[in-house]
C-alpha cells in the first residue's frame, strides 16, 4: 500500500503543491513540482524538514541596536526557537562585516549563524 503526503514547496515564491508517494520508508514518486528544487525539497521535507533561521542580535556602537543574522544553512525545523534563544545573550561590538560568523556551530547543528549585513562603528 502506497501513501501520499502533501507539501507546499518553499523553494521559491511559486509555492508548488507537492505530492510525495511512499511505501514504507521508500519514496516512490514526487509530483507537482515545477523544477528540480521541488523534488529535492519534497524528499527532504518528508524525512527531515529543515529551515533557515533569520533573526537579530544585540550590537553596540552601531547605528542600530540590532544586527540582522541568519543561519548559514538550514537547521532542523524543531530547533528554530532554540537557535533564537541561544542568540539572546550575545552582545556584539561594531564594526561587523557581512558574512561574519557571530555564533559558530549553533546548538551543535554544524551550522554557523552569520551577520547578514555590515555595520560600521558609529
Amino acid at each position: 500500500m502506497s501513501e501520499t503526503s502533501h507539501y507546499l514547496c518553499i523553494g521559491c515564491p511559486l509555492g508548488c503543491r507537492l505530492e510525495v508517494d511512499t511505501q514504507g520508508d521508500e519514496i516512490l514518486e514526487v509530483r507537482g513540482n515545477a523544477c528540480k528544487r521541488g523534488d529535492t525539497f519534497a524528499r527532504q521535507e518528508h524525512v527531515d524538514p529543515r529551515r533557515f533561521v533569520t533573526t537579530t542580535v544585540a550590537i553596540e556602537g552601531a547605528p542600530w541596536p540590532r544586527l540582522p543574522v541568519a543561519t548559514a544553512g538550514s537547521v532542523p525545523k524543531h530547533v528554530m526557537r532554540e537557535v533564537c534563544e541561544a542568540l539572546h545573550g550575545l552582545r556584539l561590538e561594531a564594526p561587523v562585516e557581512l558574512g561574519q560568523v557571530v555564533l559558530p556551530d549553533a546548538l551543535g547543528t554544524g551550522i554557523d549563524v552569520v551577520a547578514t549585513r555590515s555595520m560600521e562603528r558609529r
Binding site: 507546499l8 518553499i10 521559491c12 515564491p13 511559486l14 509555492g15 525545523k77
Partner: peptide, 12 residues
C-alpha cells in the same frame, strides 16, 4: 501573501 510564507510563517 505568497504560499511559501503561509507555510513557513504560519503552518510551521
Amino acid at each position: 501573501g505568497l504560499t511559501r510564507n503561509v507555510v513557513q510563517c504560519l503552518h510551521d
